[in-house]
Amino acid sequence: MFVRKLGFVATTGLLSCLSNAANALPAQLPNLIAHRAVYDLELKDASDRSGIEGMTGRMVYEFTGSACQGYKTDFRFVTQINTGDAVRLTDQQTTTFEDPASKKFTFETKSYTDDKLDKEVQGAASDSDAGVKVDITRPDARQIDLVASEFPTEHMFQVIENAKQGKRIFESRIFDGSDDGDESLITSTLVGKSQTPKDGDAEAGKAGDFAKASFWPVTIAYYNDKTGTDSLPIYRMSFKLYENGITRDLTMDYGDFVLTGKLAKLDILTPETCENKPVR
Rank of each mutant, 00 (worst) to 15 (best):
197 P>G: 03
242 Y>P: 02
237 M>Q: 10
222 Y>K: 05
236 R>M: 09
230 D>F: 13
137 T>K: 06
157 F>D: 14
201 D>F: 06
75 F>T: 11
56 T>L: 06
103 K>Y: 08
81 I>Q: 03
41 L>P: 00
274 C>P: 11
152 P>D: 08
185 L>N: 00
55 M>F: 01
122 Q>A: 15
183 E>I: 11
161 E>L: 02
136 I>R: 11
43 L>H: 04
75 F>P: 01
270 T>P: 07
9 V>H: 04
81 I>Y: 10
75 F>G: 01
120 E>K: 15
24 A>D: 06
118 D>T: 09
2 F>I: 08
80 Q>I: 08
40 D>F: 01
229 T>P: 03
249 D>Y: 05
160 I>T: 06
44 K>R: 09
7 G>P: 01
111 S>Q: 08
184 S>Y: 01
58 R>N: 04
279 V>I: 05
16 S>P: 00
250 L>M: 15
1 M>P: 07
48 D>N: 09
114 D>W: 06
71 Y>C: 10
250 L>S: 05
175 F>S: 04
181 G>Y: 05
196 T>R: 14
175 F>C: 04
113 T>P: 06
276 N>M: 13
163 A>S: 02
186 I>A: 04
122 Q>K: 15
184 S>T: 05
150 E>M: 12
108 E>F: 06
20 N>Y: 02
24 A>F: 01
23 N>Q: 12
121 V>S: 05
87 V>F: 06
30 P>V: 10
255 G>H: 09
110 K>E: 08
235 Y>M: 14
54 G>W: 02
258 V>I: 15
280 R>W: 08
132 V>Q: 04
33 I>A: 02
122 Q>C: 15
83 T>P: 06
81 I>W: 09
247 T>Q: 10
221 A>F: 00
98 E>P: 03
157 F>N: 14
34 A>Q: 07
64 T>M: 11
139 P>Q: 12
138 R>H: 11
189 T>E: 09
202 A>N: 02
81 I>V: 15
151 F>I: 04
160 I>P: 05
27 A>V: 10
280 R>P: 11
199 D>K: 12
119 K>D: 14
251 T>N: 06
140 D>F: 09
177 G>R: 04
200 G>V: 07
38 V>I: 13
220 I>M: 03
